[in-house]
Amino acid sequence: MSAPEINNHVIALERASKFFAGNPAVEELSFIVGRGEIVALVGRTGAGKSTALHMIMGVMPPDSGTVTVEGLDPYRQFRQLRGKLSVSFQTDRLLPWRTAVENVELGLQIGGVSAVERRKRALQWLENVKIFGEENAIKYPHQLSGGMRQRVSLARALAVDPALVLLDESFSQLDHVTSSTLRADFATLVRRLGKTCVLITHRIDDALEMADRILVLAAPARLMLEVTVTPALRADAKWRERQHHDIAAAMAVGMTPEPVTSAAAS
């Protein structure tokens, strides 16, 4: 998928900047994410990925420039985005006093869905993320494995049927096998549902595996490289290897003053 048409985007950042104590965390960052697209924001630790994500989430406003999600300002029109955006984090962030199914119900409860309907939907979403059986649904977070907890967290994010799902390093704390299984399951699921997804990661493999487009950021969150991925390219081991190398090099540029933005779509 190539960069989306400007009038069909879910996210648009236009010269968005954010400073902390005078230091830029994000500097004049511009990109758009089209409907149904899976976009990965890749960068090293401290590259400003999370700050960009927080601006998209509406937790903080940009100091200059604009950020819009579904045509709304996510910070100033915070509540109007209820049910349209959800997030899965690096750690599962499950409420310890709620069972797995009750955790999945949280967003639905806030959205005012009736008790019967939300239990039905939550159980369905647990099955969608491959947590089967009521005996697992009624377990408390401490009774589940790390992988299962992360699956519950993903189910919670998807259960509100959002237009946009944000993943903040959601697979990075899991072991390699669990992470790649979960990543593949999630990518299949969001593609089937046609959800728009922004994946924040420092792991190049995660991005190449899941994304339609990869935006490589370097500190302070400037766009260094953009890579478009198609299923055919994804299956091409040599292409992947080359992209892996290019992305790693762009990430390493990090501290150089001049960004080297280029389209690397093959």
């Binding site: 209820r82 984090f89 750690t91 962030r93 006093w97 949280l106 806030i110």
Partner: peptide
């Protein structure tokens, strides 16, 4: 703060935060 941030992603009202996060947390 992680849990507060997580609940806020669902765009709750202050009453929601009190009911679903603060009250169970203080039990």
């Amino acid at each position: 703060t992680d849990l507060v941030e997580m609940v806020e992603t669902f765009r709750p009202t202050r009453l929601h935060v009190l009911r679903f996060l603060i009250l169970p947390h203080i039990v």
